[in-house]
C-alpha cells in the first residue's frame, strides 16, 4: 500500500485508469439513464415515481462510500503522513458532498408524493443531513488555516470523527423505527425485482466511474498547483530582491 504514497507512481496508475473510467462513465450513463427513466417498468405501488429511486439510491451509496474513502485516507495521512492520501481525501470531498446533496434532493422529491411530506426528522434522514454538513465543514476547515498543513490535519481529524456517523446512517433503519424504508439488501438478497435491479446497478456503476474520473482530474490539478507553488517558492528563494519587495 505504501508504494502508492509516491505521487509519481500513483499518478502513473491513475492516468492509465483515467480514459477507461471516463469512457465507462459515458457508456454507463448512456445505457443506464434511458433504462432507468424510460424503459424500466413502473412500480406496483409507486407508479412512475419509482424512477427517482435510480438517482437517489446510487447517490446515497456514493455519498457514504466517498466519505469512507475520505476517512480511510485521512487516517493514512494522520498516521503515516502520506501526502497522496491527504490529496485523495481533500479532492474527494466536493464530489461526495454533491452526491449527498443529490441524494437528499431526490429523496425529498420522492417523499412528497409517497410519504406526503418532503422531510421528516427520522434517524435516516437526519443522519444523512449531518453527513452533508460534515462534508461542508470538512471542506471549510481544510481551507481555514494560513498553514495548509495545519488545515489538512484539522480536516483529517474532523473526517475521522465524522466517520462514526457512517454506521449510524447504514443501520439507522434497523436500530430505530423510521419513516424511511429499510435497506433493499438483506440476508435473503434484494427486495427489488430483477427488472429494476438492472437500471439500479447501471446507475451505481455510472456514479462510481464518474467519481473515479473526477477524482483523477482533481488530483492532476492539485499536483500541478503544488508544482507551481514550489516553482514560485524556489524563485523567491533565489532572488532576495523579490523577498524584500513582498
Amino acid at each position: 500500500m505504501h508504494k502508492f504514497a509516491n505521487p509519481t507512481q500513483f499518478m502513473r496508475i491513475a492516468n492509465a485508469i483515467f480514459p477507461w473510467a471516463a469512457g465507462l462513465t459515458v457508456i454507463l450513463f448512456l445505457v443506464g439513464l434511458p433504462i432507468a427513466l424510460v424503459t424500466s417498468p413502473a412500480d406496483y405501488q409507486q407508479g412512475e415515481t419509482v424512477r427517482i429511486f435510480y438517482l437517489h439510491v446510487p447517490a446515497a451509496y456514493m455519498g457514504v462510500m466517498v466519505y469512507a474513502i475520505i476517512a480511510v485516507n485521512s487516517a493514512a495521512y494522520l498516521i503515516w503522513r502520506h501526502p497522496m492520501a491527504n490529496l485523495v481525501a481533500r479532492a474527494s470531498a466536493p464530489v461526495g458532498a454533491v452526491f449527498t446533496a443529490l441524494c437528499l434532493i431526490c429523496g425529498m422529491l420522492w417523499g412528497q408524493p409517497m410519504w406526503g411530506t418532503f422531510w421528516a426528522w427520522d434517524a435516516r434522514l437526519t443522519s444523512t443531513l449531518i453527513m452533508f454538513f460534515i462534508y461542508l465543514g470538512y471542506m471549510a476547515l481544510g481551507d481555514a488555516f494560513e498553514d495548509p498543513e495545519r488545515g489538512d490535519r484539522a480536516a483529517a481529524i474532523l473526517a475521522l470523527v465524522g466517520s462514526i456517523n457512517l454506521p449510524i446512517i447504514k443501520f439507522s433503519v434497523e436500530w430505530w423505527n423510521t419513516l424511511h424504508q429499510p435497506s433493499i439488501t438483506s440476508m435473503q438478497g434484494f427486495s427489488v425485482d430483477g427488472s429494476m435491479l438492472t437500471p439500479l446497478f447501471l446507475m451505481m456503476g455510472a456514479y462510481t466511474t464518474f467519481y473515479i474520473s473526477v477524482l483523477i482530474l482533481r488530483l492532476r490539478g492539485e499536483l500541478l498547483a503544488a508544482k507551481i507553488r514550489n516553482a514560485r517558492m524556489s524563485q523567491v528563494a533565489i532572488s532576495p530582491a523579490a523577498q524584500l519587495a513582498e
Binding site: 417498468p41 413502473a42 412500480d43 406496483y44 405501488q45 409507486q46 419509482v50 429511486f53 409517497m114 410519504w115 406526503g116 411530506t117 421528516a120 419513516l179 424504508q181 429499510p182 435497506s183 433493499i184 427486495s191 427489488v192 425485482d193 427488472s195 429494476m196
Partner: peptide
Amino acid sequence: LAKHDENYMP
C-alpha cells in the same frame, strides 16, 4: 404520512 416498504416490483 404513508410509510413505504423496501419492496420494489412491477
